[in-house]
């Protein structure tokens, strides 16, 4: 038995050493907000935070997260009050929405470390795939969230 701390809650799990965190979250713990897209860390649909850093959970063994703070999309405010969620709604970013938990987790990790990223920093850091082609709005969403954080901080 191992203990994973997910969104502040301790979960006892018993899984093999190679089982990716993604499948533990989805199929064992039952948190389905984190999505499966590719299984090889290419698309970012499975992005979660481990100790605040964005990690692609499909390629990250669950046991490597023992002792760490794991945050999934469900760990963000469920009323949508996180600045990134607010910005996403203000800019009407999603379409099918499947990649958006990953986009939002990647963005919130970026802005937590770098609240005012440059355009180049945004493009270098947010590499999640979106087949609906919401990129233009994701970019605006990130800038909008950055402004919300700035206003809040000021």
């Amino acid at each position: 038995m191992q203990t994973l701390k997910i969104n502040g809650v301790q979960h006892q799990i018993d899984v093999e050493d190679d089982m990716p965190l993604l499948w533990v979250l989805r199929d064992v713990v039952g948190l389905t907000g984190t999505k499966f897209g590719c299984g090889i860390g290419e698309c970012g649909a499975c992005t979660v935070h481990i100790n605040g850093a964005a990690v692609r959970s499909c390629s990250f063994p669950a046991i490597a997260a023992v002792g760490a703070e794991i945050t999934t999309i469900e760990g963000l405010p469920q009323n949508g009050e996180h600045p990134v969620q607010k910005a996403w709604l203000a800019e009407q970013v999603p379409q099918c929405g499947y990649c958006q938990p990953g986009q939002i987790m990647a963005t919130s990790a970026l802005l937590a470390n770098n609240p005012q990223p440059s355009a180049d920093e945004i493009e270098a850091n947010i590499t999640n795939l979106c087949r609906c082609g919401t990129y233009d709005r994701v970019r605006r969403g990130i800038q909008h969230a950055s402004e919300l954080i700035k206003e809040k901080g000021a």
């Binding site: 989805r26 499966f36 469900e74 405010p77 469920q78 709604l89 999603p94």
Partner: peptide, 14 residues
């Protein structure tokens, strides 16, 4: 349906 799509509540097939 966007509010559910930014909180992870939206239900897809999987």
């Amino acid at each position: 349906d966007f509010p559910d799509k930014v909180t992870g509540k939206a239900q897809y097939g999987i």
